[in-house]
Structures are given as structure tokens and as C-alpha cells.
Design a protein around this nucleic acid. Structure first.
Length: 224
DNA sequence: GGCCAGGACACCA
DNA sequence: TGGTGTCATGGC
């Protein structure tokens, strides 16, 4: 960890990105359950591929906990095939559904009545749900005040020399949560802004110079 | 044809 | 605790 005391940078970064992109309306989904399925399907996968997989589940009339729990494993594999890793992701979805059924009687409402950190701990015990997926579920499906960290967050902050590359997920999460008001909508929009910035500006070096963060004071070395 | 995407996990030292 | 291989499809 380098200088996790530059809390002013977090607000400055948010201001720049928010005025650049505007309200991104994350997470794009019609229900909390759709957010959860999307969170599992998007693991290391382009969102475009996830959309097709979700559409397949919707078209089959299976986008609810009871229907999806009842569907045959091989059928689900074929439905989510466009999102990649379809065998392992099918298992992960089934693991979550078993968890939801056994502990909360298939009710997301009951699940989200749990204390934030207690529920996070339980979600992390589900095989296939790691920290980012758990936090995405808690924030975007459960509307709980927890900050989601992803590869873009780490990349952007380290390139702007706010954190060191070796800083852990939990440390970065604490950094955000200790230096921002615990507001659900702020956390939702901030993470969305970071992902959009990463997608649009961090992939090719010429575009990096057009990034809202690329100006004196914050611009360091996006590409070295 | 290669690279990468809104990760997680098993395995090993 | 940290590094590496694996899982798979689709767009650029």
C-alpha cells in the first residue's frame, strides 16, 4: 500500500467521472434475481456475452429462483453458453440456488433481511461466489452500502499512484468505505463509473489521453 | 489468429 | 500468503 490517505483524490475522481459520464443507472436488470445471475455470469466475461445468456434464460421463462432451481443442469448449460465457462457457471448458479433454498426458503427478501456483513460472510461460503460477486449482489441486488472492487478499480488507482498494485481487495474496499459517505447510490454509481472508464479509456494508449482523469494532478502513467 | 473481458478456485511452494 | 493454471465464448 502506498498512500491510502489521499481521500481527496477519491472525491476528485468521482466528480470528474460523474460529470463526464452522467448517471449510468447501474445495475442494468429488471429484478434483484437478474442482478444476481448477471453477477455470476459476468465473472471474467464481457457483459455483451452475459446479456445473451440472460436473454436465453428469460425467453425460456426461467428467470426466477424456483424455476431455475428446478431446471436440468444440462439445459441451463446450453442457455448460458454464450457467457463462457458455461459448465462451471451452471454449477455456481446451482450452488447459490441451493444456498437460497436451504437458508432462506428461496426468498431473496428474507436473504436481504440479514445483516450486511453476516450475509457477506455467508455468500462467500457459497462455492463460486467470491468477494467481487458477493459485493455486487449486496450492493446492486440488496441495496446494501458496500463498495465493489474490481480489476478496473485496482488498475486505475494504481496507475494514478493512489495505491500500490499489491494492495488487497479488502484494503482497497476499506479505503473507499472509510473515505466516502456510506450512501448506496453513491457506491453504485462510483463503481459503474470506474468500470465504464476502464472499458472506454484503459484498453488502448491513445484513448488514455482522452480519459477524464488524464489531466495535471491526476495523470501519471496509464501506460508505461 | 491473438488478446481480452464487470473472477473464482485448486494446487503448489 | 502469493503465484500460476484452468475454466470458454464472442468481439475486435
Amino acid at each position: 500500500m502506498k498512500t491510502l490517505t489521499q481521500e481527496h483524490n477519491l472525491e476528485e475522481i468521482y466528480k470528474r467521472l460523474d460529470s463526464h459520464f452522467g448517471d449510468l443507472g447501474w445495475w442494468p436488470a429488471d429484478s434483484a434475481f437478474e442482478v444476481i445471475i448477471g453477477a455470476i455470469l459476468t465473472q471474467n466475461t464481457a457483459w455483451q456475452n452475459v446479456e445473451q445468456a440472460i436473454e436465453n434464460i428469460k425467453s425460456a421463462g426461467l428467470l426466477d429462483p424456483l424455476s431455475l432451481a428446478a431446471v436440468d443442469q444440462q439445459i441451463l448449460e446450453q442457455l448460458i453458453r454464450p457467457s463462457g465457462y458455461f459448465r462451471i457457471k451452471t454449477s455456481r448458479i446451482k450452488n447459490f440456488l441451493n444456498f437460497l433454498q436451504n437458508r432462506y426458503d428461496c426468498s431473496l427478501k428474507k436473504m436481504f433481511c440479514d445483516d450486511l456483513w453476516e450475509l457477506r460472510k455467508r455468500l462467500l461460503e457459497v462455492k463460486g461466489i467470491g468477494k467481487e460477486t458477493a459485493d455486487s449482489i449486496l450492493l446492486y441486488a440488496g441495496h446494501k452500502p458496500i463498495f465493489v472492487i474490481d480489476a478496473y478499480t485496482k488498475r486505475i488507482l494504481s496507475r494514478h499512484e493512489i495505491i500500490d498494485q499489491s494492495v488487497s481487495y479488502d484494503e482497497i474496499q476499506r479505503f473507499f468505505m472509510n473515505n466516502l459517505p456510506a450512501e448506496v447510490n453513491l457506491f453504485k454509481q462510483y463503481h459503474a463509473l470506474i468500470v465504464n472508464t476502464g472499458k472506454k479509456y484503459c484498453r488502448k494508449s491513445p484513448l488514455c489521453r482522452e480519459c477524464p482523469l488524464s489531466s495535471p494532478g491526476l495523470e501519471k502513467k496509464c501506460f508505461t
